[in-house]
Design a protein around this nucleic acid. Structure first.
Length: 262
DNA sequence: CGGGCCTCCTGGTAGC
DNA sequence: TGCTACCAGGAGGCCC
């Protein structure tokens, strides 16, 4: 699930339920997921502290601790956050749970154990360490900069969109959506697009991501014209009703409409 | 540099 | 019903 819009949803949830609540303790059931420090080290950092703010960059979520430093969360393919109150049922298979002093809990769930939990002094350290490009929804990320950066690419547009060091936050689902909204087939080469077309890709990218972020706040209001909820072997195009096709790109299954994305 | 393939993992499901 | 193979919204490493 977790691409930029999903992580933005987790962030909104964190802002509503996770801030200004002193931490009583941390339980880690999957120590493999803890990086840069140990489960114990992480526990020491969190104990008796509260989170004051969150920050998101691409698919990474940061939660600022009031004693300095930030909790770093990456969700892999299957991760999510679940807040639950005293006496409420915890989610199954939580990889880590933060207990708040008021009796509430925050669970980090990662069914396939492909996510990461870490601690950092500053988000910039992670951004540099992971070689992340600008966040796909950062305000200063203009069409001009986007077009210039993409124009240097020799590979496929879908690969470039999913390349976190070029632009951070887009994965398989939303790269497919962007290609669909642009009317471009999955194997389109960046070099086949002129700068006007690249600027269009940028504006579609922003529109798609913004729409998806908004849809996460007002549940399931992703427009019916989106490919998103149709993607499967027997899915049909939301525009022209043609049968969708699929092809492997960068090792991922890409769904597309052979008629609209000719 | 970029594409293709493999790997890390677990769980759901199509197909036999 | 039970088993297996394969696939899944991420990402890094390796080889060509």
């Amino acid at each position: 699930m977790p691409e930029l819009p999903d992580v933005a949803g987790f962030q909104a949830r964190f802002d509503r339920h996770g801030l200004r609540r002193p931490v009583a303790g941390l339980h880690v059931d999957e120590p493999r997921l803890v990086r840069e420090t140990s489960a114990q080290g992480l526990g020491r950092r969190l104990k008796d502290r509260a989170f004051t703010a969150t920050h998101r960059h691409g698919k990474f979520l940061f939660a600022q601790g009031d004693g300095g430093g930030l909790l770093v969360l990456h969700f892999g393919m299957t991760g999510y956050l679940a807040f639950y109150g005293e006496g409420e049922e915890p989610p199954e298979k939580a990889a880590a749970v933060i207990d708040f002093r008021d009796g509430g809990h925050l669970a980090y769930v990662s069914l396939r154990l492909l996510g990461r939990i870490a601690w950092t002094a500053a988000p910039e350290d992670v951004i540099q360490g992971e070689k992340l490009g600008p966040d796909a929804l950062d305000a200063w990320w203009t069409a001009e900069q986007f077009a210039q950066r993409f124009a240097e690419r020799r590979g496929m547009l879908k690969s470039a969109l999913m390349n976190q060091s070029l632009i951070a936050g887009i994965g398989n689902i939303y790269s497919d959506e962007i290609l669909f909204q642009c009317g471009l087939p999955p194997k389109t080469k960046v070099q086949a697009l002129d700068s006007d077309r690249l600027r269009e890709v940028q504006s579609v990218t922003r529109r798609v991501l913004r729409t998806a972020v908004r849809a996460h706040q007002a549940p399931h209001s992703i427009p019916r014209t989106y490919l998103l909820h149709r993607r499967s072997e027997d899915g049909t195009c939301p525009r022209c009703n043609a049968d969708l096709a699929s092809v492997k790109v960068s090792g991922r299954t890409s769904y597309y409409c052979p008629r609209c994305q000719g």
